[in-house]
């Protein structure tokens, strides 16, 4: 199957590959996978207190379309408010990269990665803010 020029461009020159420190309180990390093909994608977003995405990094182990989708997403979300970023649909990625139907799940994966990273950031911010009240791990009663 032939990849589109845009996929090849992102695949050969991926933008924003790498990691932020997981300890950084401003960083939300989303790790998602596509169980149909075994691709794993990690997306990290650096988000300021106003909820604006300052920077993004990704590491994706999988096919060219999965790498291109995550690379494109790191460019797409920069400067956006998390509410805007949450509203990003995979169809935008499909359109930009001209993904064929069999590779649409790669764009879904990238969409899920954004949501997972933002959710992680919110949890961590919430946890810090609540530190003075209750520790969620103890209060939740995981049954162990």
């Amino acid at each position: 199957m032939a990849y589109s020029d845009k996929v090849l461009d992102h695949y050969n020159n991926p933008r924003n590959v790498g990691s932020f420190s997981k300890e950084d309180p401003d960083v939300g990390t989303g790790v998602v996978g596509a169980p149909e093909c075994g691709d794993v994608m990690k997306l990290q977003l650096k988000i300021n207190d106003n909820g604006v995405i300052q920077d993004a990094r990704f590491k994706t182990f999988g096919c060219g379309s999965a790498i291109a989708s995550s690379s494109y997403v790191t460019e797409l979300v920069k400067g956006k408010h998390i509410d805007e970023a949450m509203a990003i649909k995979n169809t935008v990625i499909v359109k930009e990269l001209n993904l064929p139907p069999v590779k649409i799940h790669c764009s879904v994966l990238a969409e899920d990665a954004i949501k997972a990273a933002i959710a992680d950031w919110k949890t961590r911010k919430g946890a810090t803010a609540d530190d003075t009240k209750i520790e969620p791990s103890k209060a939740a009663g995981s049954g162990e």
């Binding site: 998602v32 169980p35 149909e36 990690k42 590491k59 799940h105 994966l109 997972a116």
Partner: peptide
């Protein structure tokens, strides 16, 4: 298979990375 199943188990994700 993929429905509600995007979470990579943490331990496995760690191994992958």
């Amino acid at each position: 298979l993929a429905e509600n199943n995007k979470q990579v188990p943490a331990e496995l994700a760690e191994t992958v990375f």
